[in-house]
Design a protein around this nucleic acid. Structure first.
Lengths: 110, 110
DNA sequence: AACCATACCTAAATTGTTTATGCATAAACA
DNA sequence: TGTTTATGCATAAACAATTTAGGTATGGTT
């Protein structure tokens, strides 16, 4: 289980941004469970990785957060700043293209 | 240029092993230039990354090296140990599957 | 002679992630 | 009613991988 752990590094930020772009607004815990659910437990984003990543993206000004109290628990929602939507698009596309390159590289040895 | 630098981390070992599996025997410098050429300069494996990676794979017993003198320059060829070919197959397949998962995750936001 | 491509290598610094915690609330359960 | 499970945030030490930046050396090109 979690065979993909080693491959995940480097893709975390882009996965976060892609999910944020798709859903508009998400909170950290939701990003983890969403990725997990969408990939049938194949992609496990750990909280220890995702929260620092979100904080860093916010510090860079790419995303912004807003707190909301829901059922007595606080949720911190993140969304992509409009000014950076294009950058995010590019980043997502670049990762997509990268995965295609990797597949082309690996295919001959499969 | 080299937009893929951040995505490369974590995939280096598997790329090396896939190329070695495909070509049978390769030397470090060749692995770098091969990846570069095959991807039209999109995947740049740096020597500072690849040599330590090769040494580590050898220390683990997954690959083995043999030196050869060619045109007055020494080349250190690496190949996958037979006993580990199955492990390598699995690893390559796992990365391939992972890239497919990533594509499925990213697609809705493209 | 200078320079570039080839070919190996290492090591400090940076970075990202894991692992291991901690706090707190709500709901389910026994 | 007390414990566990799920939710939801967070940080920090340790670890691992990679970058950056150097080093050595040979052969071929200008």
């Amino acid at each position: 289980m979690n065979k993909n752990k080693e491959f995940l590094s480097g893709t975390l930020n882009t996965i976060i941004l892609a999910l944020l772009k798709e859903h508009g607004k998400m909170y950290g815990y939701e990003i983890c469970s969403s990725a997990k659910e969408k990939t049938n437990n194949a992609i496990i984003l750990t909280e220890g990785a995702i929260y620092p990543a979100l904080h860093k993206l916010e510090k860079k000004g790419i995303i912004e957060s807003s707190k909301q109290l829901i059922n007595g628990r606080t949720r911190k929602y993140y969304e992509i700043r409009k000014a950076h939507l294009d950058t995010v698009d590019e980043k997502v596309q670049t990762l997509y293209d990268f995965t295609t390159l990797i597949q082309a590289l690996l295919k001959p040895s499969l």
